[in-house]
């Protein structure tokens, strides 16, 4: 992990309500400069609202938001790049004109924008498409153009709302590399995602919001430490079917080729019970994955528990 000290984004006791729905509730957050910060949370939990407040697209009802040293103003909007969840491109405009327009809105001169467009299109192997209209592009290509429009002005802060949705593994890797490249050059990256594995791989910090409230915030390591080594990764003949109904098992997360199990008591008791029933190929005490943590907080069981 990189060394970080200054704050790129700071939220202090921020709240936002839409009618009777409390979208964000007393949220405080500090995104260090130069970090990659992952926003996770179920749909409708307040991720996009938080992002929009950081961008001053909507204003907070209460609290203070500081972006690149500027408190509650749009003063630094030229230094912030944004890729929205719902893609926004003019279908009838050519790729180059579109990118030039977005670059000009970020204060770039026409010449600088021209050079940057050349560079980005080449990097994403989209040079032959520069004079084509957006409507002629595939979904993956349009997604890359959308990313370029967010990154073209070399922002100090890049906010990406679900950047990997709908991308094939090749394009996903291209985009991931581009994000890391920008981060290496000093850009702070905030991105929201539903892909927990990607969040684990890419993020220095992870923040989880659930029903408008912060439920996790920290490095993956610190988050996992909160839960301790309470998970057993198992690979057994017979799969998850054999685990159902065992009194030694509290919950099972079936990952297909292996299972993540939370024992109800001593893991040794579980191992003993399993050995009596089947052949155990893997029995590993581990910290829970981000995916598992997410489900423990926002999964159906957690919701049932809350309801009770």
């Amino acid at each position: 992990m990189k060394e970080v000290d200054l704050e790129a984004v700071g939220l202090r006791h921020v709240s936002k309500r839409f009618g009777s729905h409390q979208a964000v509730d007393d949220l405080s957050l500090s995104v260090p400069e130069g970090s990659v910060y992952g926003f996770i949370g179920p749909n409708g939990s307040g991720k996009t609202t938080t992002i929009r407040m950081i961008l001053h697209i909507i204003s907070a009802d209460a609290g203070e938001i500081e972006v690149l040293g500027s408190v509650s103003t749009r003063a630094n909007s030229d230094q912030v790049g944004y890729l929205p969840e719902e893609r926004g491109l003019y279908k009838k405009m050519t790729v180059r004109r579109q990118l030039a327009y977005y670059a000009s809105l970020k204060g770039m001169t026409a010449r600088a924008a021209h050079l940057a467009i050349d560079d980005w299109l080449e990097r994403f192997e989209l040079s032959p498409w520069g004079h084509r209209k957006i409507e002629a592009l595939s979904k993956g290509m349009a997604q890359k153009i959308q990313f370029i429009s967010a990154a073209i002005a070399k922002p100090k802060l890049l906010i990406l709302d679900e950047p990997f949705t709908g991308l094939d593994p090749v394009n996903l890797e291209v985009l991931r590399k581009a994000i890391l490249e920008l981060n290496k050059q000093g850009t702070t990256v905030i991105f929201s995602t539903h892909d927990m594995a990607m969040a684990e791989r890419l993020c220095d910090f992870i923040f989880m919001i659930y029903e408008g409230r912060k439920v996790l915030d920290g490095t993956l390591e610190t988050i996992q430490q909160q839960y301790g080594e309470d998970t057993v990764r198992l690979e057994i003949d017979g799969g998850s079917r054999l685990l159902e109904g065992l009194p030694e098992v509290e919950r099972i997360l079936d990952q297909g080729n292996y299972q993540e199990v939370t024992p109800s008591g001593d893991p040794q008791a579980l191992l003993k019970a399993l050995v009596q029933k089947t052949r155990v190929k893997r029995f590993e005490l581990a910290r829970p994955s981000l995916h598992d943590i997410f489900l423990r907080i926002a999964g159906p069981e957690a919701q049932e528990g809350q309801a009770q």
Partner: peptide, 14 residues
């Protein structure tokens, strides 16, 4: 711009 969700992107800059 509103239907194609371009507005949100524009409002983040202007």
């Amino acid at each position: 711009e509103k239907m194609q969700r371009i507005s949100e992107l524009l409002i983040s800059s202007v």
